[in-house]
Design a protein around this nucleic acid. Structure first.
Lengths: 142, 142
DNA sequence: ATAATTCCTATAGATTTAGTAGAGAAAATA
DNA sequence: TATTTTCTCTACTAAATCTATAGGAATTAT
């Protein structure tokens, strides 16, 4: 039931961009330094987010990345789904056809409940919420 | 965020044993056939459950496995934790020391929320509950 | 021109997953 | 006691996934 580094880092990248929203493009180098993640690896992750339309890029000097929408319009569910694929704990939840017992399977019902719960939490938390939490929690450090 | 086959199969094995609770030892061969899982692989999984004290084994002819406790006293949380390790979506939830930012990290707070939710669901569902669901759902097939 | 950036493609070691294989040990039963 | 049925234990392995690293091409501001 682990999230890979893509999902984890992705969430942190997006929060970082949200914290600097309105300050123009943020170069990957800065994010990498603040988040202590290899720039090259970040690049791969943010490319996926870009293709999905959650961030925009500006090339060249003074370039970087910005959120494609205001922080309130992006939630964690979108980010995680893009980077990790479905959040269902087992494949048959989304694709019942892969298993002949899907229709009758009570364990599958449990996995569905879990998916619904996780989905609900992730959808309910926007980047704006995270920014507010961050400011509240770490007032002294910012 | 996927469960491995160990957790999935483990849940099905335990449900199978719960459905036959009170009928004496159930040989692995039978479970393997009903659940369509390789007997040899099942063996590895059930061994872990045995070491953890959730099932007992009886050797020899008419041997097999039985639940070590009544179905009402075993919940899915125990089964999954034994087979998959912690259900936390990221390691830092359980072991904050591995990450220097753990204390201030708002994304970690989200992962904690998710863990709590999943944990709650799994703990709340006992094998007895699953047996009842199975009987209700598949009355015609049993 | 130069420097700072993103963009694109390829590679690769480590770990995990999902099994397979085979011989050994215990118990029931004929 | 010989046989059969079952669990027990140890080892192996192919494939996939994870977690990056590397290098150069393209773009833009100054």
């Amino acid at each position: 039931m682990r999230l890979s580094t893509k999902g984890r880092y992705g969430a942190r990248i997006m929060l970082d961009l949200a914290l600097h929203y309105g300050q123009g493009p943020i170069p990957l180098k800065d994010i990498a330094e603040r988040q202590q993640i290899s720039e090259k690896y970040l690049e791969q992750i943010i490319t996926v987010l870009k293709i999905a339309g959650l961030v925009k890029s500006i090339r060249g000097v003074h370039g970087g990345y910005i959120l494609a929408k205001p922080p309130a319009k992006i939630n964690l569910g979108q980010i995680i789904r893009i980077l990790e694929g479905s959040i269902a704990p087992v494949e048959c939840v989304d694709e019942p056809d892969i298993c002949p017992r899907a229709e009758f399977c009570v364990t599958r019902d449990v996995w569905k409940e879990i998916k619904r719960a996780v989905d609900g939490i992730l959808k309910s938390i926007s980047l704006k919420d995270l920014v507010e939490r961050e400011k509240e929690k770490n007032r002294a450090r910012i």
